[in-house]
Each structure stands twice: as structure tokens, then as C-alpha cells.
Design a binder for these strands. Structure first.
Lengths: 200, 200
DNA sequence: TGTTTCGCATGACAAATGTCATATATATGT
DNA sequence: ACATATATATGACATTTGTCATGCGAAACA
């Protein structure tokens, strides 16, 4: 099978390519260090499978996966990510990816997963079963935007200017976000939301 | 040369081990997924070099490096890290490590660096030259502690209880940290300090 | 010894924050 | 058409935050 690898961390990308290339039935035909380059390569090389990291510059792996669906490419997608954030997993499932692996898994799982996906199956890291039961992001779009800006240190005033809302409204959104996340103040709310991957 | 690898991300650890083991002159004699395990393995196996990730559970790679110096082990240290945070690099240099590589570098650099260090040399990723000129952490110990707790959402009151200080003193430390980091409020200060790796 | 610095503390004050009750206009569903 | 939900806004209030001036004892140092 013909595979391309998109992963921004050079060492991991190189190591995975080298190892996968040693398998008789796997050929790594391209490597990308960001999502944009990945899309170009997929367009150019029409691989069977692309292995996508999520956190990459320009376009994330999830962005790429969604693009592939929108453009109706045959290329199957296996996501490879560090964190088992519920938000990531849910978005990946909605994009119809075929595999979702954690970088924590042993390497053997990687080639096994690629084969399973190549044969039309699905492959999900077992640790992720838990994520299925994790809470979905309870924040509305507005609450997310506001909380994200708050995380950069902006005051309610500044946020209101930024989003064309009134300062009071911003405080209401923040208050609501704090309540939903069961936090004591905006800072804890930011920490909690970040840990769950709800601000990306 | 006999090497042990400490890296918490299973896939990278496995991939690096496999690749390094293929080199004729390198033998990976042990793997650890956290700093504590790494120390035990080094004690048990007395390798020539240990390859240490920084961000690991229980003990970080820098903690391990400092322990090795304190215990006067012969084992040389090569740090492998994601971010070129100035704080990390400076602490590593103070601990007398022999190599400091970025996970962004190509894999070829890894075996090359191990050989150079094994032969008594030093190996530092070229991108890190920049870090030498980056600002040193301007925060005092107290300011760091206070800011770190603030980052978890604790109020000045709660922090004061935690560190056995008065609430007023805590606010003074926070105020000072905010001034030093040129931030508008504690939240921006937390964001800035985190980005520079000054809270670890 | 005296002087300076450092770590910690206090009090006062303005500004920002978090909470609530309430209001309006638009959209949605029946 | 009517009821309901949603997005946004306001005002009032107590609490927390950020700043600053100042005080005190211990360590460092001349």
C-alpha cells in the first residue's frame, strides 16, 4: 500500500517513515511537515492511506481530513495524535476517518492499523474507548471564543471590542462558561477547557 | 555503545529504539517511559549514554540529568526535547549535559550526536544557538510558585494558604511577576511564562 | 558595627471580575 | 399566530485583583 505521512516533528516523522518503509507491503511515498503540504502531496501522489498528526502548522490533521471528505478523495485517513482529547476524537469521527491512534501506543500497532484500514476496516486505539464516554464540549461558540481570548490575558473590555459585543455580555458568557466547567474563575475555566481540548 | 532511551511517548520511544538498534555500533539496552524508571535502569545497566526526553511523568529528563551529576555517574546525557525553550536549555547546561537535540531535527542527527558524545564531544542542535541569546527567566522562585498556582485557577487567598504566605504578599508577588513579564494581568503573565517554559 | 538588601507583611484604593435579575429582538417550532 | 428558545444587553452588587507606599526582621556585607 502507498502511504504518506504528515507530522510536524521531524524526528518522529523520519523514524516512522523509515520503519514503515521496511515493511514489505508498505511504501512511504511522501512526507509532509504541515497540513497544507499534506494536501498537496495527497493530490499529487494519490496514496491509499495518509497518516495525519493533528497538531500541525497551517492546517491541522483534522482540517485535512475534512478537506479530503469534501473533495471526495479515495484516500483513507488514519489520525495519529498525542492526546486523547474527546473533542479531537469526536471531530475525527464526524469527518469519517478510518483510524485514530495515540502516539502513546507501541509502534507495532501502527503497521497493524494501517493494514486493517487498507483492508477496509477501522482501527482505534483501545485507550480511546474511554473517550467515547467523555463529555462533549459543553461550551457554545461564543463561550469558546470569549474564553479563548480571556486565555490570552484580555480583559472583558478588550474582548468585547474584539468580538463586537458589550463588556457586560462578555462577562455573562464568561460567567456561564465558568459555571458549565465547574470552575471557580476564568483562569480555572481556561485550564480545564484547555486540558480537554475544547479551545482548539 | 550501550544506550538507554527515556521518552514517555510510546511510539517515538519504540521507533527510535528500533532504528538506533539497527546501527552496528549502538545497542539500546533499556527503555523507560518516565524519569524514575530511567534512573533505575541507569543504575542497573550502567549504560554509556542515556537519551532523555524532558517532559516526562514523575521526574523530568532535567531532573534525571541533575541526579546523575549529583551521584557522579559516568553515564553521559543527551537531552531530546520538543521545544527550544531557553529555560530548558540553560538548566540543561548547568547540569552539564553533553548533548541537547530538538525532536524537530532529522533522525540522522540523532545517531551522529550519540557518536559525537560517546567520543567525548558535545552535540547541540544548531537551531538552539538562538536560545543562547534568549532572555533568562526573570522570575524568582516565589514568583514562579505563585504564578504556577495562579495558573491552576487558585485565588490569592487560596495560594496564600498553599504556600503559607499572607494573601497580600501573594498579590505582591503576582504584581511583580506581571510587571517583570510586561503583562496586563495574571492571565497574560501565565500565558507568557508558559510559552517561555518558565513555569516548569 | 552599621548599612544594605531581601523576604514577607499590612493597609488603602481603584479597577476588574463574577453573579444575578431582567429586558429586547430575532429565530424556531407547533 | 403563539409560545419558546436564543443571542445580546443593562444595571446593581459583593468579591477579587493589581498597585503602591510603607514597615519589620533577618541575612549579607562593608
Amino acid at each position: 500500500m502507498r502511504v504518506i505521512i504528515a507530522e510536524d516533528q521531524g524526528m518522529l516523522r523520519g523514524a516512522l517513515s523509515a520503519l514503515l518503509d521496511m515493511e514489505d507491503d508498505i511504501e512511504v511515498v511522501g512526507q509532509a511537515e504541515n497540513g497544507e503540504k499534506a494536501l498537496e502531496l495527497i493530490d499529487l501522489l494519490q496514496p491509499d492511506i495518509c497518516l495525519l498528526d493533528i497538531e500541525m502548522p497551517i492546517l491541522t490533521g483534522l482540517d485535512v481530513a475534512e478537506q479530503l471528505v469534501a473533495r471526495r478523495y479515495a484516500c483513507k485517513v488514519v489520525i495519529l495524535t498525542t492526546f486523547s482529547r474527546s473533542g479531537y476524537f469526536q471531530r475525527a469521527m464526524r469527518a469519517g476517518v478510518h483510524g485514530f491512534l495515540l502516539k502513546d501506543a507501541p509502534i507495532d500497532e501502527l503497521s497493524a492499523a494501517l493494514r486493517r484500514v487498507y483492508d477496509g476496516g477501522r482501527a482505534v486505539s483501545p485507550e480511546l474507548a474511554i473517550s467515547l464516554w467523555e463529555a462533549e464540549n459543553p461550551l457554545t461558540d461564543r463561550e469558546r471564543e470569549v474564553l479563548k481570548l480571556a486565555g490570552e490575558g484580555l480583559s472583558a473590555q478588550e474582548i468585547s471590542g474584539n468580538l463586537h459585543l458589550s463588556a457586560g455580555t462578555v462577562r455573562n458568557y464568561l460567567s456561564e462558561a465558568i459555571r458549565k466547567l465547574d470552575a471557580k474563575n476564568r483562569i480555572e475555566a481556561i485550564a480545564i477547557a484547555n486540558k480537554k481540548g475544547w479551545l482548539d
